[in-house]
Measured scan of single mutants.
Amino acid sequence: FEIPDDVPLPAGWEMAKTSSGQRYFLNHIDQTTTWQDPRKAMLSQM
């Protein structure tokens, strides 16, 4: 499912887009990137 862009990312995360428009996520805390939206895990725990 798609999460609306107005749902905030967890602390330390940033959303970016590739030149082709694909979204990816940067974790500044552990210096990693992922295609997986970290908000999905956050919302599934609620």
Rank of each mutant, 00 (worst) to 15 (best):
F1L: 08
K17I: 13
K17S: 10
M46L: 13
N27Y: 03
M46S: 15
N27M: 00
W35V: 05
M42N: 08
A41T: 14
G21P: 01
P8W: 01
K40C: 07
I29L: 06
Q36A: 10
P8C: 12
T34K: 02
V7P: 04
R23I: 09
I29D: 12
D30Y: 15
W35Q: 04
E2Y: 11
G12K: 03
V7Y: 06
F1T: 15
T34D: 00
E14M: 03
A16Q: 10
P10D: 02
Q36G: 05
G21E: 07
W35G: 05
Q45F: 09
T32K: 06
D37Y: 00
F1Q: 03
I29W: 09
M15T: 05
R23S: 11
A11I: 06
D37Q: 01
T18I: 01
K40F: 11
E14D: 13
K40N: 13
H28E: 02
K40H: 08
Q45S: 13
Q45L: 08
S44G: 13
Q31N: 08
D37N: 01
Q22P: 05
M42C: 13
N27A: 00
E14W: 01
G12H: 04
P4T: 15
W13K: 04
Y24W: 01
T34G: 02
P10W: 00
G21S: 06
Q36P: 00
T33L: 03
A11D: 11
H28K: 10
P38V: 00
T34S: 12
T32C: 13
I29C: 08
L9F: 12
G12E: 05
D6N: 14
G21Y: 03
Q45W: 07
E14G: 11
A41C: 07
R39C: 01
S19H: 07
D5P: 08
G21Q: 08
G21H: 03
A11T: 08
L9Y: 07
P10H: 00
W35N: 08
S19L: 11
Y24L: 03
F1K: 03
M46C: 01
Q31S: 10
L26E: 05
Y24H: 01
S44V: 09
F25I: 00
P38A: 01
G12M: 05
K17R: 12
D6C: 06
T32S: 11
K17Q: 10
M15P: 05
T33R: 04
Q36D: 10
K40W: 07
K17H: 10
H28C: 05
I29G: 13
V7T: 10
T33K: 06
S19V: 12
G12P: 05
P4H: 10
K40M: 06
Q22N: 09
I3L: 02
I3W: 01
Q22V: 11
A11N: 14
R23M: 09
D6H: 04
F25Y: 11
I3V: 05
M46E: 13
T33A: 04
Q22Y: 04
L26P: 01
T33D: 01
D6W: 05
S44A: 14
T34R: 02
A11G: 10
R23N: 12
K40Q: 07
W35S: 09
D37G: 01
M46G: 11
F1I: 15
F25S: 01
